[in-house]
Amino acid sequence: MFLQQVINGFASGGIYTLVALGLTLVYGVLKILHIAHAGIYALGAYLALIAYRIYPNIYFAFAFAMVGTAIGGYLVQKYLYWPILDKPRIVPLIASIGLFLALEELYRLIWGPYVIPFPQKFHWKSYNLGHIRLPGSDLFVFALSLFFLFILYWIVNRTKVGLAMRAVSDDKEVAEASGIDSKWIIALSFIIGSALAGAAGLMVGVYYNSIYPTMGDVPAYKSLAIIVVGGMGSIEGTVIAGFGLGLLEALLIGYLPFAFPRDALAFIAMIIFLLIKPEGLFSR
């Protein structure tokens, strides 16, 4: 029972983390809150639907969704944020919220207001560890999240371009004076963050077997809470806060003697942090 809850928590934590990382990367390089990112996440789920119509294969669906959301993210930064970057910070924030709502309406227009099931049925095996049963769907989501996190970790900490990303988010002008094209690094942060969100959208589609226009709502505010708790712009903080939130939700639901409003926990955590440690877990 306990281990089952833990794995379940790690699975949803993995999804939260993947989505929130896009916000973290964007906040790092641009210092804006990219609310519309949750719209990109939903786009990932819908793109997986399209992919299945073209060629029903899960790998193809991943590739299709991630490339599509990467392009989407790139276009958002180029045509929405870039032109208004020198405006007060409230302007890109409002534009971002506006785009998020517009995207949801767009999905409603194209795919209808219905909940669409994921086109492929997965017959999950369960894995037995002694007398504990671990559901295959949880393991699938958790393992894939770790895989994507590892790739991100490798890019950010082990490659030249990752060094440039860290530099631009630390001090853009010093990075530029060192010969880094910050415009390209910012675009790249959107591309990587959006591809991760696309993967998360697909995984949620598979996991809950449902895709709908407003599926980005809950991840939108949860990822906001996660990056506040993690410390704005900190990748380590986001990973810890994301998995921590998933785990805490699963355990509270499993063990509390009364019905706990699962989705409220993220905000409760955020408020507590804002009161006692406003700079978050990993302040920079």
């Binding site: 060094l163 860290r166 530099a167 630390d170 001090d171 002008e173 010093v174 990075a175 530029e176 004076a177 060192s178 010969g179 880094i180 094209d181 910050s182 920079r284």
Partner: peptide
Amino acid sequence: KAHERASLGISLSFEGGRILRTLTVEE
């Protein structure tokens, strides 16, 4: 742009010892 000028051979040591604080010395 600044990064193009850097490639041409212009470099600036910023006021107040401004460096990338979150990176290591070698980075």
